[in-house]
Nucleic acid binder design. Structure first.
Lengths: 113, 113
DNA sequence: CGGTATCCGCCGGGATACTG
DNA sequence: CAGTATCCCGGCGGATACCG
C-alpha cells in the first residue's frame, strides 16, 4: 500500500507518466520533455514503471537504436486517479498558500525582538 | 502543485492524517498510534500540516501540558481524495505485485548462467 | 541513441540528551 | 508531556566517463 502510494510521491514518476498521457515517446524525447531529470533517474524511473506494468518498453532493432515508451491501460487508470488528486491540489492551492503565508507571518522566529 | 502532491508522497503525513480521521489526538497518542515514527519526525510533520491548514494545534495550559491535534475541514477533504487513490492501490495491488514478480523472473540478472 | 558503471556530496531522518 | 537541540550515518541522486 505505502509502497504504491510512494510511487505517487516520487515526482519523476508522475511527470514521466504525465508526458505519456496521450502519446508514445522515445527515451531522448522523454529526457527533453521532463525538465531537469538526469539520464540516470529517467532510466531508473522507467525501469520501475515498466516493472509495475504501468508502461511498456519497446526496443526497435535499428541503427541508431530506438526505444519507445507508452502507457499501459493500468498506467492510464493511475493517471486518472492522480489527476483527481491534482484537481484537489489546484482547487485548494490558493487556500493552502494563504494558510502558509498566515502561519509564517504569525509564527516566524523574531529577527528583531 | 508538485509541492502539494509531495505532501501525499510523505508517508508520515498520510499516516498522521489517517489517525485523525474521526477523532482528536494528543501528541503522545499520535506517537503511539503511528508506528515507527520518531518524536522529531512527528513534530516536523505536525508543524507542516498545521502550516498548510490541514490540522489544528490546541495547547491546553495545564500541568502537565496537553496539546490536541484535530483535522480541519480542509484536511478532511484531502483525506477523502487520498482515500480514492488508496482504493486504486488496493484494487490493483495484486496486479502490480504480479507484474513485479513476472518482471523479476524474466529480467533478473542471471546468478547461474 | 540509449543506456551502464562509478564516484561522491548532501541531507533526510534516527538516536540521544536536554528543557519549559 | 511535548517538545528543541545536536550529532551522525545511509542512501538518493547528480556528474562524469564509458559501451553496444
Amino acid at each position: 500500500m505505502l509502497k504504491i502510494l510512494a510511487l505517487i510521491g516520487d515526482k519523476w514518476s508522475i511527470l514521466v507518466i504525465g508526458q505519456l498521457r496521450d502519446r508514445t515517446l522515445r527515451f531522448s524525447e522523454l529526457h527533453r520533455a521532463v525538465t531537469g531529470i538526469s539520464q540516470r533517474m529517467l532510466t531508473l524511473t522507467l525501469r520501475q514503471l515498466e516493472r509495475d506494468g504501468l508502461l511498456t518498453r519497446t526496443v526497435h532493432p535499428s541503427v541508431p537504436p530506438r526505444v519507445d515508451y507508452a502507457l499501459t491501460p493500468l498506467g492510464a487508470t493511475l493517471l486518472d486517479s492522480v489527476a483527481a488528486l491534482a484537481e484537489w491540489a489546484t482547487t485548494h492551492r490558493q487556500e493552502i498558500n494563504s494558510n502558509r503565508r498566515h502561519y509564517d507571518a504569525t509564527h516566524s522566529p523574531r529577527t528583531q525582538p
